[in-house]
């Protein structure tokens, strides 16, 4: 519309511009506010290095002490190893032969039963020539298999292949007669060295 008045310009602010504080004051106030509003330092993570070190040492100790046992020892009433005054470390080399109250086990396989009264050794049916014989046939058969494997390994690794070694884990109540039958059969099967496993005495 031609007779309309032109739009009026914005009226100038009636408030006088505020006087700015000096730069030093401004900075001082800024520092004060930053300090005041700064959040408390939050612990975002734990320093677990020391703890991990400790746990690693415990783990290594456990693994080391468990590896000191040459065979996985069955813990039962059927097999309790005898106590000894020895404090030396157990030998690691050889075939584990377990003689418990109820059976003879070689390489995790049961080879024959042990009678309740073993003062005459194992039953005559397992012997080569009657009850007075010391040679246990099923044990010898199992030993022969292992001996053949061990002989090949010893030849390949440059060790003396004439004889093998055995680790005997025998129950503490085993009669001497049964022990001798097992030792004799081992000797006949070309096992020339035995490691009799015992429970170690506490170190002084």
């Amino acid at each position: 519309m031609a007779n309309q008045p032109p739009p009026q310009a914005k009226p100038a602010s009636t408030r006088a511009p505020q006087k700015q504080a000096s730069m030093a004051t401004y900075k001082r106030e800024l520092r004060k506010q930053i300090k005041k509003r700064a959040a408390e330092p939050e612990i975002n993570f734990l320093n677990i290095t020391a703890m991990l070190d400790m746990m690693t040492i415990i783990l290594v100790f456990l693994l080391k002490s468990m590896s000191a046992q040459s065979a996985s020892l069955p813990k039962s009433q059927d097999l309790t190893m005898p106590n000894s005054l020895l404090t030396t470390e157990a030998s690691q080399e050889g075939l584990a032969v377990l003689v418990s109250k109820s059976s003879i086990v070689v390489d995790d396989a049961e080879v024959c039963k042990v009678p309740a009264d073993a003062t005459h050794g194992v039953e005559a049916k397992y012997k080569r020539s009657g009850p007075n014989d010391l040679f246990i046939q099923p044990l010898a058969a199992q030993l022969q298999q292992w001996r053949e494997r061990d002989r090949q390994i010893r030849l390949a690794t440059g060790k003396d292949a004439n004889a093998s070694e055995a680790i005997l884990i025998v129950d503490k109540d085993t009669p001497y007669r049964l022990l001798v039958e097992v030792l004799f059969t081992l000797g006949q099967s070309e096992f020339a060295k035995f490691h009799l496993m015992v429970m170690q005495a506490p170190k002084k």
Binding site: M55, I58, L62, S65, M66, A68, Q69, S70, L73, K75, M81, S84, L86, T87, T88, E89, A90, S91, I167, V180, L183, F184, L186, G187, F191, A192, K193, F194, H195, L196, M197, V198, M199, Q200
Partner: peptide
């Protein structure tokens, strides 16, 4: 788990006596 393992696993220290056939 570590505490449980330590409490349950009884570490047995073994030794061996060397011998020869009878």
């Amino acid at each position: 788990v570590l505490m449980f393992v330590l409490a349950t696993v009884s570490v047995t220290f073994t030794a061996t006596i060397d011998s020869y056939p009878p």
